[in-house]
């Protein structure tokens, strides 16, 4: 993907099928600090720098809650 195409395509807020709305995505600060030992020693899951990041349990990666991916699974409401 070119830089220009990527810039054109960026999301600016969470939509209905963004990672933040996905069943695989965990953004609870307590859960994130439990999943990443040591995070709370010299930083925090409550810090602004974390933005909308969370943990994708399907890909086992830290990911931005504003992105989208083909593995989206709606949360049970």
């Amino acid at each position: 993907m070119s830089v220009l195409a990527a810039l054109r395509d960026w999301p600016s807020k969470e939509d209905d099928e963004s990672c933040g709305q996905c069943a695989h995505f965990h953004a609870d600060p307590a859960a994130l600090e439990a999943a990443l030992p040591g995070l709370a020693i010299l930083s925090s899951a409550h810090a602004s720098v974390r933005g909308e990041d969370g943990l994708c349990l399907r890909q086992d990666r830290i990911t931005n809650g504003l992105r989208r991916c083909p593995d989206f699974a709606p949360t049970a409401r």
Partner: peptide, 16 residues
């Protein structure tokens, strides 16, 4: 430090 690492981890999709 840790704050920088966690911020960029989400931006680049780093493994947990």
């Amino acid at each position: 430090g840790v704050s920088g690492a966690i911020a960029v981890a989400g931006a680049v999709g780093a493994k947990k």
